[in-house]
Every structure is written in C-alpha cells, then in structure tokens.
Design a binder for these strands. Structure first.
Length: 482
RNA sequence: GUCCCCAUCGUCUAGCCUGGUUAGGACACCAGGUUUUCAACCUGGCGGCAGGGGUUCAAAUCCCCUUGGGGACACCA
C-alpha cells in the first residue's frame, strides 16, 4: 500500500519552525517512500482562522520547497482539503455515533463547564467532564431546550486502557479513567479538532500521522474514536518539541520563530531545511551538511530521536553562512540586490556593467555573512561617499611611513589606466620596492585611507572594486597622503 | 494536582534495542597555522553519560526509585 501522509496546519498564525519541521519530516518520509504528501487546512476554529495565514503558510512551504501532491491549491480525489468545507461529513459521522449510542447530546453550557473545570483544578483534581448528560431524562431535555440551550455532541469514552503504539516512542499506555467524554461536535454544529482530525485522516486514507509530541495525549481519544467507527487507526509517530534556549517551548518571546521572518532576513531555504532536519533526526553517516536529495534518500522514521531539541540560532547562522559561501556567486548576488536597494545603495535599472561590479562586491564580502540582511552593513565601504577615519586610524596615517606609502600609491595610480585584479599585485610590489615598507606598514595605511577602518574585505578586492578614480578621490579626502 | 513523554559535552546529537568504545561527530568557545586585517579555511584543545540503588565478571547501554525538564488535561488546534 502506498504511504500517505499529511501536514495539517491550522491557519491561526504564521508557519513557525516547529510546524515547518513537522511538515519537513512528513515531506521527507513521503518522498523517501515514494508516497503521497498532502496539505490539509484545519480551520474548524472559525474565530481564529484567517485567509491571510493560510496564504502565508502556503508561501512559506513553497519557499522551503516542500511541495505537496494533493491538497490545497492542487486538489485530488479526497477533497475538499479545507476542513471548513467538510462540515457535512463530520455531522454525518456524529449522527452515526449518536444512532449507535456511542455519543450523546450534552446541554451543559460553556460557562458551567468552565466553572467546573476551574473548581476541579483548584481542588487539585483532573478536570474532566463528569458525564452528567449521558442519561438525561426526557423532561430534562425538554426543559433545556425550552431554555434555549444548544447542545454539543459528546463521545462516550469507554473506560478502558488505551495503548498507543508509537513509531518513535514505542507502546504508550494511558489509564482507563484518564479521559472523560469529550466533545466531537460543538453547539454551533462545527466539529471539534479530535473529531474532524480523525474523520479526515480516515477518509483521506492517511497511513502515517507524523506530528508534534503535544498531540501524544490526544491520541488515546482519537484511537477510541477510530474503534467506535470500526476503523483501523493509522500509524503514529510523535516527534519531540522544539525548545527555546531556556528549555521552554519555543515561542515568539524567544525571538524569530516564523519561517517568514527567517526568509525576510535572508536565510536560504536549503539551510533552513538542512538545519530543521537535524532537530530530532540524525543522518546515518553523521555528515550534517545534506542536500534535500540526500536527506530524502536517508530519512527514515527509525532514526528519529526522542528528547526535545533546543533551537540553536548560532548553528543555523553557521549553516546558512556555509550555504551562502558555497552557492553560485550569481545567485547570492541576485538575492542580495533587494537588500541593497532597501539600503538605498541601488536605484533603478541595473546595467550589465553594474551587475558585474556587484558580483565582485558580493564575492569580496560573502565570507562574512550569516544571512543576507547583513549585506548592506558588509558592503558599506564600497558605497560610502565619505571616509570616516577612527582616532587610531588617524594616528597610523600620521606616521611618516604611511605618508610615503600613500603618496607613492597616489602617483602609481595616476600612471596606470585602471586598477584591476591583475595589476593589483604588481602595483603593491612596486610600492614596496620604492618605499621599502612592507607588511602592516604597507597595507594598513592603504586600507585606512581608503575605507577608514582597519579591518574589512581583502585589499585585493577593495582597490579593483573602487577603481582608480574612486581610490584617488578617497586618497585626497581629508588631506590624506600628501 | 492527575496522566503522559524525555534525560550523553553549553547546544544539536552518535553510541543504548543486541552490556566489554581511549564515549565519536557538528555548532559555540580557546590555541596554532594560513591570510597585509577581519572573516573564511586547515590543525589541535577544552568539555558530557543528572543522582541513587539494583542485575552482571562487566552498565552510557537492562530494571527500579529520586530529581530535573517538557507536554496534555478546552464548545483551541
């Protein structure tokens, strides 16, 4: 049988790293097994769901390159793939359970329920529905109806031990009285999560449910529902949570958690995917840098690790930097252009000559990058109109040796047509020969006079990128080099 | 509070299932090399089996307890 897995986000917020990791694991498993990856939207909470989130989630999945074979925007024979369009189906199954006496109407109001819940919590008891509406007498029902109460439908949870057989955790046993009768259809007729979820998994013939560990304790409820419907449940794999540095569940207060934020900051999809793949999974050969193709080949549910994983931004940054350095220069340059525009360094159309120049600028600076939003800061020296020299820099320029090096450089520059990658070396050699200075005495004054800073991109990049004219202009700024 | 999950360097983790390893790798950190600087890169170093009981000739590995962390207990998903 062909493997069918799904990613089923609810559109109540942006795709965050945890969701992305779940989507990725599902995707990898589907691709590894040549199965089907399905995207389904769980929007039964009409109040919190929003179209813009649905759109954003789709954008982010596309950005990560996690394409789906069936579902939203694609269709398929198991559709519709939006739960809000499947309400009749849930109702039908709820009615069936009602008829089979496996569910019942409950007339308790939200206010009553909440009060009882709080009371139980206060007393240190497990908050659980007491089943008081299980056997309502006719007159009671009449009275409630008269009061205008709209009933929910509750599932009669059998008081039996439930064993969840989990692919990553093994057999997990839940005690018989751990759960009360839970709501499957709300008073407004909309299915509750546990119900809609299993009806869809069942009717979409999902074979493996790979999801966050926070769903592990939902699973016994769902298994009970499968049993009541006489259906074999899918296989479950609960992957551990992603934590912040303080070991609390990762959330906004830990900083960036939305994939969209990482995208905006200029994280490459392959870096994000690669880093996320390492959160709770380990490649058999121990080599961590992996393309999506390799990940697909090697990913299997066996080597998923159980303990929760702390999200390490430093490692992500390192990995993103690695991909920035090893990607084709042209691609990184193209990706950097929007950031340069935003910084005001680039305006209008980019001529081929300008593009060529930009490639060099990125080549000179990419080794310093962790993410693309850092580009403007790194390339500043090439765009600055003025050269601001630090106090220490001024001290160095005051030295007799510096003055001689710079005036020689100036003269040499005037003699040549243009400074290029090729003649840079010989130019420096000539200055060295003529002045007798080398090393720091030779290079540092040039760097400072040209950029104002004593660190930055390599000089062999700086001179050709600035060009003869700009070099001479900068040398004459602030009476330097006279 | 009750139930469930988890526990190897600061972090991600390999090793655990099928006891015998100098407990391995990656990020970070430190040092050296390379480079005119920084970065990148290369080499080396620092650093860990939460604690306590068992079982066994032998325990990171199997069992129990403690501790710690996380999750769930909604007309949220």
């Amino acid at each position: 049988m062909r493997i069918r897995v799904r990613f089923a986000p609810s559109p109540t917020g942006y795709l965050h790293v945890g969701g992305a990791r779940t989507a990725l694991f599902n995707w990898l498993f589907a691709r590894h097994t040549d199965g089907t990856f399905i995207l389904r939207i769980e929007d039964t909470d009409r109040k919190r769901s929003a179209d813009r989130y649905e759109k954003a989630i789709i954008d982010d999945l596309r950005y990560l390159g996690l394409d789906w074979d069936e579902g939203l925007g694609i269709g398929g024979k198991y559709g519709p793939y939006r739960q809000s369009e499947r309400f009749p189906l849930y109702k039908e199954y709820a009615k069936r359970l009602l008829k089979e006496k496996k569910a019942y109407y409950c007339y308790c109001t939200e206010v009553e329920l909440e009060a009882r819940r709080k009371e139980a919590l206060r007393k240190g008891q497990t908050p659980r529905y007491d089943g008081r509406c299980r056997n309502l007498r006719k007159e009671e029902i009449k009275r409630y109806k008269k009061e205008g109460r709209k009933p929910t439908i509750r599932f009669k949870a059998p008081k039996k031990k439930v064993v969840v057989s989990d692919l990553v955790r093994g057999e997990v046993t839940f005690e018989a009285d751990a759960l009360g009768d839970f709501i499957i259809l709300r008073s407004d007729g909309v299915a509750a999560f546990n119900f809609a979820n299993i009806i869809d998994d069942m009717s979409m013939e999902i074979t493996h449910v790979i999801r966050g560990e926070d769903h592990l304790s939902n699973t016994p409820r769902q298994i009970l529902l499968y049993r009541a419907l006489g259906i074999e449940p899918p296989k479950f794999a609960h992957i551990s949570m992603i934590l912040g540095p303080d070991r609390a569940r990762l959330s906004k207060r830990h900083g960036a958690t939305a994939i969209a934020e990482y995208r905006k900051k200029g994280y490459l999809p392959e870096a994000l995917v690669n880093y996320l793949s390492l959160l709770g999974w380990y490649p058999p050969d121990g080599r961590e840098i992996k393309s999506k193709k390799e990940l697909t080949k090697e990913f299997f549910l066996d080597n998923i690790s159980k303990p929760p994983a702390v999200f390490d931004n430093q490692k992500l940054n390192w990995m993103n930097g690695h991909y920035i350095r090893s990607a084709p220069l042209k691609r990184i340059t193209d990706l950097a252009i929007p950031y340069l525009r935003e910084a005001g360094y680039l305006k209008g159309r980019i001529t081929p000559a300008k593009k060529k120049w930009l490639l060099k600028v990125i080549e000179a600076t990419r080794t310093h990058l962790e993410y693309l939003a850092q580009v403007p800061k790194e390339v500043e020296v090439f765009f600055a109109k003025e050269v601001k020299i630090s106090k220490e820099g001024k001290e160095i320029l005051k030295k007799e040796s510096s003055k001689r090096v710079l005036s020689t450089l100036k003269n040499k520059l005037k003699e040549i047509k243009e400074i290029t990658d090729k003649n840079f070396k010989s130019l420096v050699k000539e200055i060295e020969k003529e002045t007798g200075y080398k090393g720091k005495d030779l290079y540092l004054p040039i760097r400072i006079a040209l950029t104002g800073k004593n660190r930055g991109p390599e000089l062999r990049f700086i001179l050709p990128i600035l060009g003869k004219k700009e070099c001479l202009r900068r040398l004459s700024l602030g009476r330097v080099g006279k």
